[in-house]
Design a protein around this nucleic acid. Structure first.
Lengths: 338, 338
DNA sequence: TTGTATGCGTTATCAG
DNA sequence: CTGATAACGCATACAA
């Protein structure tokens, strides 16, 4: 008895509504989609039945008919990285605003195959991701599947649908900035070079360094690791710090790394910026907090936001033009470089 | 020509596969779901066709048949609040691990009606949320809809399916801690009392304060606002700071507020903890950063994680028992109280 | 082992 | 203005 009632109340379908309102199921559908094409009286009867049964249309069935799911799949990097906090927030806000649901996956550069498989089986209307490698086979797959996608922060070698900072010149700006501030020695901390972001930021740094400092970059003065081993990093930094006289700064490939470096150096007993300067790239929100107050280089716009805007535009206009944004950057001169 | 090929490649259905493999559609379905019930030779033929057409089953259609969607809807508070960063990360990780997709909505205590409507129309297998009011009509609705749900951080008056801190005693602990540290004057910054978290934390503070300090709480010594107006807050804090002699501290209802207060007081020229102590509640990850180093009271476990674990258990075991966790807390004595 | 037929909850087309 | 009816893509009971 009670169960029966529940079924009718909670999981009511348009057929149940139709019966109650003594109309055909088609009419119920019309009331929802083309109310003006239904007689006033009939409409009210249906509306009342809908209310009474707490009827909620099954979006799955709708999607099946329409062929579109109104789902956008977001494959984000880990939220321990404040960059992805910022981008996730922007993406979810904008997409929701536009009537899309956001399916979120959080990945770690590892175990990503399975994520793609699962994500794609949901037939999202679009895919937005950041975790792509410079030579990633997935791109080919996506093109074949003919599903709109965009990458932000990182891009593929093929320059297909991406929104990125001008990574090369961002690092260049950082390096110039340190030079102008008369730093004598720079230590670089980055990530694996199979990722466009790290690849070009490192290149930008290396080229610029060798140009302005007139010497080739010492292999002991940088670290590019997939997963940063903070014990090893501590040792390397310590060695570099002891060896080099003068004014010293660490250039981190991302704000996330820089913020971790703030911890590390403090723990090592090095005060920032007095004994060692630290500068990042990205200009994440967290860097603006006065207790972090990280000097960094970044853009005025949120890459994730640009990417989702473009993706949705592509979806809704069935546009075929390549999404290609390279956002220029500037220095945000705050407290960790003096 | 090209288009035709694309259609077959990208959006192939089981019927297309069936044709190519010269079997019935049902057999294709069987190959996917019960491979052992299909002849070896037939199976291989189907598998080859699947491969060739890059066939991906349409999850929507599957859901429609099965009635279950493997989707969990997460309605989270804003990611500007680090508490929700932590919980979102835990929830997404765990749910994905268990084979669920996570549909994420980010809300702001306002405009939440529409979110519920949209979220529910997707027929998620479960709902996990934090944004509920103490007297929220949605609870009744959810119960009628018979959809598994759990709230974390906040709970409903009815004590239905929640995971929360012991908010009353958390605030009590904070207040006692300040008393032991010989603070003479305490300013409270919280949120609207129509939310269980703020309601009980404030109550815990007020009761404890009046008990140990032997005086009723001065109306000028606290602020409970829905949206914190930092200009007004600055004035109120300034007034309180000037008026009261002795050792002074601000007790924030959440770490998020406390971390903002770190900014505010710094901007006001008050050094923390020397001129004013600050203590929060929640013990978010960010509070552990040595540059923030916030003294706070919180639990060892992540509320979101407990909640998602319980929710999935409920879904998979069709359990009917009420989820009710009240997690006890402790002081994390760091740098913002001396 | 395999095929046929049916239904899941919608929307849309076509008659009436 | 309204009611049948055919898809949408898949899973499954039932036949063969």
């Amino acid at each position: 008895m009670k169960k029966n009632k529940k079924i009718l109340e909670g999981r009511a379908s348009s057929i149940n509504v139709a019966k109650l309102a003594k109309v055909s199921q088609a009419t119920v559908s019309r009331v929802l989609n083309h109310p003006d094409k239904v007689g006033e009286e009939t409409r009210n009867r249906v509306l009342k039945a809908i209310e009474e049964l707490k009827y909620v249309p099954n979006q799955n069935a709708r999607d099946l008919v329409s062929g579109s799911s109104k789902v956008i799949t977001l494959i984000s990097g880990p939220l321990e990285n404040p960059f992805f906090v910022d981008s996730t927030a922007s993406i979810v806000h904008f997409a929701t605003e536009k009537g899309y649901k956001v399916n979120i996956y959080i990945v770690d550069d590892s175990d990503i195959e399975e994520t793609y498989r699962q994500a794609l089986s949901n037939r999202p209307d679009g895919l937005i991701m950041s975790c792509i490698f410079y030579d990633d086979p997935i791109i080919e797959h996506l093109e074949r599947l003919d599903i709109p996608f965009v990458t932000f922060n990182r891009r593929h070698r093929q320059k297909l649908n991406y929104v990125e900072f001008d990574n090369y010149s961002a690092a260049k700006q950082a390096c110039h900035f340190l030079y102008e501030k008369q730093y004598d020695s720079i230590f670089w901390v980055g990530g694996m070079l199979d990722v466009s972001t790290f690849k070009y930021r490192f290149k930008g740094f290396k080229d610029t360094y060798e140009e302005i400092y007139q010497s080739t970059l010492n292999p002991l003065d940088f670290m590019n690791k997939k997963v940063i081993d903070y014990n090893m990093l501590r040792e390397n930094i310590w060695y570099w710090y002891q060896k080099n006289p003068g004014k010293k700064a660490i250039l981190a490939a991302t704000d996330s790394i820089a913020i971790n470096l703030l911890s590390l150096t403090k723990e090592m007993g090095l005060s920032c910026p007095d004994e060692v300067g630290i500068i990042g790239i990205d200009n994440v929100e967290l860097s603006k907090h006065p207790y972090i107050n990280l000097t960094t280089v970044g853009g005025a716009q949120n890459l994730g936001l640009i990417a989702i805007q473009e993706l949705i535009y592509t979806i809704e206009h069935q546009s075929n033009t390549n999404i290609a944004y390279t956002i220029s950057t500037q220095i945000f001169d705050r407290g960790t470089i003096k």
